[in-house]
Design a protein around this nucleic acid. Structure first.
Length: 352
DNA sequence: TCTGGGGTCCTAGGACCC
DNA sequence: TCTGGGGTCCTAGGACCC
């Protein structure tokens, strides 16, 4: 039995603790530049149609009275650690999914439902923050259950209940079925999860291939055999920026790339992490995105090497159009570290 | 409505080796 | 002279998640 703990409007809730006078008002955490997007919106702001990833400019138009707060990720990370510490104090096995989300493995516990309730109360007690909790026989069911009664919700579902409950819903309610897949399904005449669950594997294979097809069918039936991973080792780390105004020409781009490399290597150096693959990412004004990468014989993290490779990749790419985003990435980080071959937990595959 | 930043995994094709 | 199959590593792009 598993639970998913999802903090309610996490960044906004954390900000409201620092500025309680804003409670009850529409509050939006968003950057300030012309291309910023909303990171989190309070439930009051959501009523105006402002959600995560809404362009900040548009959010201002939709909700002129909203209070806009610039994100403070260092603070959110610190508060997140508090939350996760509470979870770990109650449950042995915790899988952290993001700053505001974690799965709990309730297997060892008798009366798992009561246990999950206690954890929810403890989070509020210790941090003053509310969360929504879903409980179910798999991570997938726990996750969709947690979405059912936000905010401050608590929902337990069996797989069968989930199937009946969501049979008429868009396949998009299932994490793993994104906008592209939803659109393809619609074109194929499959508009609901119930309909998807009823499509034969043969047909799904024809439509989506031998792996993705059956996988979608399993998702629609809420069959999920994913394992549980309590410790993750990052495999790559990157820095990227979208410019307030598009950049033109190599000199400008090189300067920006050097800055990004500097930031990235500083972080990697501090943590003594190295990677063999160095990559860049370039997004043009029309949003077309290209990546280039090169793998070296040895893992590196020094500014000299990483800049040399990144700049060479950039020059060879020789972007001739206006560039809106530039990024740099070091991958293959986990390799040298003998990260215990953690119970390999096949994402898409699983247990056939 | 012109679309952030930081990640993960999958796929397809080519190189290379046995 | 041509044919071959399997395995691994790498690159690039795409879909998705928080």
């Amino acid at each position: 039995m598993y639970a998913l703990v999802d903090m309610d409007a996490f960044y906004v809730s954390v900000e409201l603790q620092r500025r309680p006078e804003l409670r009850g008002r529409p509050v939006v955490v968003a950057g300030s530049g012309p291309r910023a997007v909303v990171t989190t919106a309070s439930y009051e702001a959501r009523r105006f149609g402002v959600f995560s990833a809404t362009p900040a400019e548009r959010a201002r138009r939709l909700c002129p009275d909203a209070v806009f707060i610039p994100p403070d990720f260092d603070h959110y990370r610190a508060r997140s650690r508090e939350v996760m510490a509470v979870l770990r104090a109650h449950v042995d096995r915790v899988e952290v999914v993001g700053l505001d989300e974690a799965y709990l493995d309730l297997s060892g516990l008798e009366r798992h439902r009561a246990a999950a309730r206690r954890v929810k109360a403890a989070v509020r007690e210790a941090t003053g923050l509310t969360c929504s909790v879903g409980v179910g026989p798999s991570k997938l069911v726990a996750k969709v259950a947690s979405d059912l009664e936000k905010p401050d919700g608590f929902t337990e579902l069996t797989a069968g209940e989930a199937r009946r409950r969501f049979a008429g819903s868009s396949p998009a309610v299932v994490p793993g079925i994104g906008p592209k897949t939803v659109a393809r399904l619609e074109d194929l005449g499959v508009a609901t999860l119930g309909a998807l669950a009823a499509v034969s594997d043969t047909r799904l294979c024809e439509w989506f291939g031998p792996r993705l097809g059956p996988y979608l069918g399993r998702l629609a039936r809420f069959e999920d055999t994913r394992g549980f991973e309590t410790a993750r080792v990052a495999k790559s780390e990157s820095r990227e920026t979208t410019f307030d105004h598009d950049l033109h020409g190599l000199p400008q781009l090189e300067a920006a790339l050097r800055r990004l490399v500097g930031e990235l290597c500083t972080t990697l150096g501090r943590q003594e992490r190295r990677g063999r693959t160095i990559g860049i990412k370039v997004r043009f004004s029309d949003f077309a995105t290209v990546t280039r990468a090169r793998t070296l014989d040895e893992a590196v993290n020094d500014i000299g090497t990483v800049s040399a490779v990144a700049l060479d990749l950039l020059r060879r790419l020789g972007p001739r159009r206006p560039v809106r985003l530039l990024g740099v990435r070091v991958a293959g980080l986990a390799e040298g570290r003998r990260a215990a071959p953690a119970a390999r937990d096949d994402q898409l595959s699983l247990s056939v």
